[in-house]
Simulated assay, not measured.
Amino acid sequence: MTTSTKTEDLFTYLDETAQFLEENGSVTYLEGIAEAGENLFREELCQTLLPDQAQILKEKLDLIRKEEFKAEEIRKAFQLVVLKGMKGAIQPHHSMTPDAVCLFISYLVNKVYGKQKEQLALLDLAAGSGNLVSALLNQATFPLQACGFEVDETLLKLAYVSANLQKHELQLFHQDSVEPIALLEVDLVVTDLPIGYYPKDGTAKTYELQATEGHSFIHHLMIEQAIKKTKAGGFLFFVVPNFLFESGQAKQLHDFIKKEANILGLLQLPKSMFKSQQAGKSIFMLQKKGEGTILPKQALLAELPSFTKKEALADMMKQINKWFENELHIL
């Protein structure tokens, strides 16, 4: 008989409770996950239910609430159950940064800031359900304070509940991050960019990267907003579509980035991660220009091997480490 892991135990609790609330309440499965997490955080039922329904949920909660979970176990359980919920969601923006990508970006962030002693400020302009920002907080080798913006209320609640259970101090804002945001400059931006057109032409007009005609690209506007909100010398990591520099507005984007930041690298994610070539994505690395910043002689351009091929991945990481040492003098 196989014993379940802590992550599996938590997944089962979240999944079964969310299903029960969906079947017996007026919530969606994704909303049910957030409510299940809130019950666990408060160690009591937060819903108004019939006595027999409340008893069923109380028994599920009693089975799990005495267990101690590590932050990564909580993040991974949430990731799995939210992924299940997203398969049934019809909203195209309901997607999640894959676990391997979160961990690889964490490695890159630790590479540039790993020896930092002072607390740094992190911004995610499209936090979603909080998977990427949680991974960064869990993996960081330096003190990190984070904030995230998310326009979707359900995803924001999931991020909030997940952060509470992981004991993260994560500031979350229910706001469109392309709109003006009252936020001090941060040291680091990490965002899995939403792709598509931004509908608010009036807001887009305040950006250098507004389209000359028609709607502007939301991913272009977010890159501009991110650079604006980053301190001189700060680093930015984006998950971007592979076609980022192929659109009619690509030159405008490239010229703006070159003016404001140093392009460090573009790492193409494994093709096997995506259903089609058009859906392929890359990790785009920038450093905002400032005193003491180094423009690399050669940007880091590479196609990452499958994350399941450990030897090839280890070899690639050696090459990346060598690039950081040679080009940015980071050991």
Rank of each mutant, 00 (worst) to 15 (best):
M317P: 00
K6L: 15
Y207A: 06
K231N: 13
L21E: 08
E72A: 01
A279P: 01
M1P: 12
T191P: 05
Q91L: 15
F11K: 14
F69G: 00
A312H: 05
D192A: 12
L184F: 00
A232K: 15
G37C: 01
Q175K: 15
A89V: 11
M1Y: 11
E67H: 14
A250Q: 11
P305G: 10
D9Q: 15
P270C: 00
M316W: 01
I257C: 07
D187M: 01
Q252L: 13
G32I: 01
K117L: 14
P98E: 09
G114E: 09
Q119F: 07
A127M: 11
D99T: 10
Q55E: 12
L328H: 02
I294G: 00
F173C: 02
G128F: 03
G233Y: 11
P194E: 07
T97G: 15
L269Q: 05
L286H: 05
Q19R: 15
K66F: 04
K111E: 10
M86G: 10
A163M: 02
L155I: 10
Q298A: 09
E73I: 04
F69L: 04
H254Y: 13
Q249K: 11
A211I: 02
I195C: 02
F238T: 04
T48P: 00
A312T: 07
Q145N: 13
G214N: 13
F245M: 05
E59C: 03
D152P: 11
T308M: 03
L63A: 11
V112N: 10
N39H: 06
E44W: 00
W323G: 03
I64C: 01
K251S: 12
E44F: 05
L155H: 10
A18N: 10
I283F: 02
I33R: 01
G248S: 12
L50Y: 08
N131P: 08
L253C: 09
K66S: 11
F274I: 02
L132H: 07
L184C: 00
